[in-house]
Amino acid sequence: MTTLSVTDRFDEPAAVKTGAAMVCASGLGVRLGDRQILRDIELTIRPRTMLVLLGANGAGKSTLLGALATLTPVTGKLELFGQTVNRDAAALRARIGMIGHQPMLYRDLTARENLVFFGDLYGVAQPQARAMQLLQRVGLADRAEDAVKTFSRGMTQRVAIARALMHEPELLLADEPFSGLDLASIDKLEALLDELRHEGKAIIVAHHDIAHALRFADEVAVMRRGRMTMHKAAAQLDEQALRQEVLA
């Protein structure tokens, strides 16, 4: 059984080391009002890497994703795609796709209209064709003209993924993407994320299921009370030790 010690926290991940880091955070913190939500986050993510963030509710996983998406003001150093994030982060943000707790879609628009709308905002060439291509990919081409509000949770999540991929982001952030999905939908989503990783995207997923995380992640990080207490290659971990770290 692998035991985790303080000395092997933040060790260099055994993920793909070719290519420049997509995310490089050092001493990253988030303060909202009087509360320090995140502190001292050290994180480097390279292309073709799937990092799963584990941690209890309120550990700071969603806040970290929001910070990496440049939606939350941060302290410390944050570089995305080799560039320091400054106040005008729109150009960097355009290279990020995000799947949130909520689908982040307009429920009264059809699946295709939602995708075309976001494609237009991102300046995607031929957004109609791209939307149909993505709906085909997530298995919803036949429901393209149906309003999102008529979809099941799993179908809505697939449209949300298609929305996040409309502008071909290099970095995909997913906050609890598997929650509320049935087993078939989980398998489909996992396969899709795996495909995206192989295409060269870096993917960061906030998740609760430790066994599932170990099965499909390249790297696993554990968050606790706003700190990243562990970040290792998934292959170096076993479920029991990881469970102890998460529940500590």
Binding site: A69, L71, A90, I96, M98, P103, M104, L105, R107, F118
Partner: peptide, 18 residues
């Protein structure tokens, strides 16, 4: 209100729109 439903505003803010 349509921006609040289902978190659509977050997707809007994530897009490169002033």
């Amino acid at each position: 209100a349509c921006e609040r439903h289902d978190g659509a505003l977050a997707a809007l803010l994530l897009a490169p729109v002033d």
